[in-house]
Design a protein around this nucleic acid. Structure first.
Length: 600
DNA sequence: GAGACGACTTAGCATAATCATA
DNA sequence: TATGATTATGCTAAGTCGTCTC
């Protein structure tokens, strides 16, 4: 819990008011709730014990995907060059494919094979008998039709767009919020995922499979007994209505691709998510206090007589030093072949006793989460190197590097070293401590360069955590545009400087007030242009350095927001320069409680 | 201890909304 | 005011990790 000194004045004041009015027993509960609504200091509310997440939960249930609208009769599907009217079920699935025609997915064999197999399941027996080859299917007319619709949407009048916006807002107000205990909370994803073709990442064996439509009878509702239960659409029933207050979800269903459960949960701005987020960073701060001991321990364990201990110790070293993920085992053939630390295979690393002037270099090359490539060459301690050589001895490339280790064993060990410690805490800790250190080291002075140095620090973390993105499609062009702007600004500056020089010469000869004033004006103009130029140059550097790096993920999930808030307060940088609206909402708890002297 | 499962966090991409500029 | 660029938001896949069962 936060110390009472952190409580905002407004909150204290409201509590005082409510204390004064406490004899109005009937309204006291309402008042407290009202106070929390107003001052947003709900992070300081008492927490439940025994895994209870809430006492009261009421919501309106999910919003279902709109029903399928059959194609107009002039839009045709062709098989083997001839138009063919499809049954509504088969047609719907065909539209999913046609909407993706421009995407690389539809050129991939696995995607096409999976799609065709599932599509055929939706066909009538006549259709099934006729449509036997995907290559003979022509979806272009359908594809053009949907492109047309999307163009039409873009070309809508202001009034039409406004109408849609209003309808969305109405839906949001009705379904986008719930009441959890005393608060009206925003729901994250109140719309059920529409049917479509599964888009797995990387070489996913199930890409292209049909993601089926979710119906009310697939839905489990979770709410409190004494709440007004959400109504299923007329003529339908929920699969189940349950009242489990040990979980935070409001709605769940089982998806058909992997058979996993999907949930509707609250928005990151909610009390329940904010508190959890805060807790996560507090655990990472506890790791800071004992990380030296843990590091000494795993270094000691590199020498252990037991192979499993040595493997564990080297794995923790990687997780700590390189911010690798834990690496759970995955079911073969069910998902893309990706790995993390514990699931690394021999083929994923190469050992160099010497490389480019460095000793004991390990080269990592593997696909991690979301099939993002991790490539890194790092020098390691001799003992680690020798251990790795040993772990790889007499193994095939596709054998596990750490054959005596899995995430369960690893996390059990970490839990023993520190309460609440698991592999992912190292990522949070190393990310946050890196940001804090880098911000301390940055010496820039102006607001613009301060923000650049913040972005640099953010970038260092993104690189550590290997958060990559595809370079934006418009990157080259936008870079050229920016360069053109910089060139123009340079010319402008040269002109302004020449003007200033001339004005100075005039003033020297004339020695009157008017020409002195002119010099001053010209001087200011030069100054202004210099500042503008610097700003542009900073922007160009920032953009270039960010080409393939995604900053958002670390900002949102790994960097203790209190570090950023404190930094903003210390240097008088508006928080809006660092966090946009959504981020400010998510980090409201940190903005509320962090002072300029906050230390991670 | 293995394996399945459930609940939750973390992730990149697509699209919508907003902003800047001609 | 239209258009293109940029940023914010939405979407949902893919991880982590604890618990339960055998």
């Amino acid at each position: 819990m936060v110390s009472s000194s952190c409580l905002p004045v407004a909150h204290t004041y409201m509590l005082f008011i409510s204390a004064l009015m406490s004899y109005f027993c009937g309204i006291i509960e309402f008042l407290i709730g009202w106070c929390y609504f107003l001052d947003d200091s709900r992070w300081e509310e008492e927490r439940y014990t025994d895994g209870v997440k809430w006492k009261f939960l009421e919501h309106k249930g999910p919003v279902f995907a709109p029903p399928y609208e059959p194609l107009p009769s002039n839009v045709k599907f062709y098989y083997d060059g001839k138009p063919m009217k499809l049954s509504p079920e088969a047609e719907e699935v065909a539209t999913f494919f046609s909407k993706m025609l421009d995407h690389e997915y539809t050129t991939k064999d696995i995607f096409r094979k999976n799609f065709f197999k599932d599509w055929r399941k939706e066909m009538t027996s006549e259709e099934k008998a006729k449509i036997t080859d995907l290559k003979k299917c022509n979806f272009t007319e359908m594809s053009e039709y949907f492109k047309g619709l999307s163009e039409a949407r873009k070309a809508m009048t202001k009034e039409q767009k406004l109408k849609i916006k209003e309808e969305n807002e109405r839906l949001l107000q009705e379904y986008g919020f719930c009441i959890m205990d005393n608060h009206r909370e925003r729901i994250a994803n109140f719309r059920i995922e529409p049917p479509g073709l599964f888009r797995g990442r990387g070489d996913h064996p199930k890409m292209g499979m049909l993601k089926r439509r979710i119906r009310p009878q697939d839905i489990i509702i979770n709410c409190s007994k004494n709440s007004k239960h959400p109504e299923p659409p007329p003529g339908t029933k929920w699969k189940e209505v349950r009242h489990d207050n040990k979980v935070t979800w409001l709605v769940s269903w089982t998806e058909n691709i992997q058979g996993s459960i999907k949930y509707i949960m609250l928005n990151p701005s909610s009390r329940i998510k904010g508190e959890k987020d805060w807790q996560k960073y507090e655990t990472a701060r506890r790791l800071k206090k004992c990380v030296d001991r843990i590091r000494a321990q795993y270094r000691e364990d590199w020498k252990s007589k037991e192979m499993r201990v040595r493997q564990r110790a080297v794995a923790i070293y990687f997780i700590d030093k390189l911010a690798l993920r834990a690496g759970n085992e995955k079911e073969e053939g069910e998902t893309a072949d990706t790995v993390g630390c514990c699931s690394l295979r021999v083929e994923h690393i190469k050992l160099y006793p010497e490389n480019e002037g460095q000793e004991y270099v390990v080269e990592f090359d593997f696909l991690g989460k979301d099939s993002i490539r991790y490539y890194n060459k790092v020098p390691v301690e001799k003992r680690v190197f020798k251990n790795l050589q040993l772990f790889m001895e007499n193994k095939e490339p596709d054998d596990d590097l750490f054959d005596r280790l899995n995430t369960s064993v690893l996390n059990k060990h970490l839990q023993e070293l520190m309460d609440g410690l698991s592999a992912k805490v190292f990522r949070t800790y190393n990310a946050s401590i890196t940001l804090q250190q880098q911000l301390k080291e940055a010496l820039e002075n102006t607001a613009a360069s301060k923000i650049l140095s913040y972005n640099r620090a953010n970038r260092a973390v993104a690189i550590l955590c290997n958060h990559q993105r595809a370079p934006p499609k418009t990157f080259e062009k936008s870079m050229q545009n920016l360069q053109a702007k910089i060139d123009a600004k340079r010319d402008q500056l040269a002109n302004a400087k020449r003007d200033l020089k001339a004005a100075k010469a005039d003033a020297k000869g004339l020695r009157d007030d008017k020409s002195k004033k002119t010099v001053e004006t010209k001087r200011k103009a030069v100054q202004r242009i210099e500042e503008q130029l610097m700003k542009l140059e900073v922007q160009a550097t920032d953009r270039e350095e960010n080409k393939q790096i995604a900053l958002g993920t670390s900002k949102l999930n790994y960097l203790d927001p209190r570090i950023s808030v404190a930094w903003c307060k210390k240097w008088g940088i508006p928080i809006e320069k660092i966090y946009n609206k959504t981020q400010r909402e998510k980090f409201a708890w940190a903005i509320d409680m962090a002072e300029k002297d906050f230390e991670f």
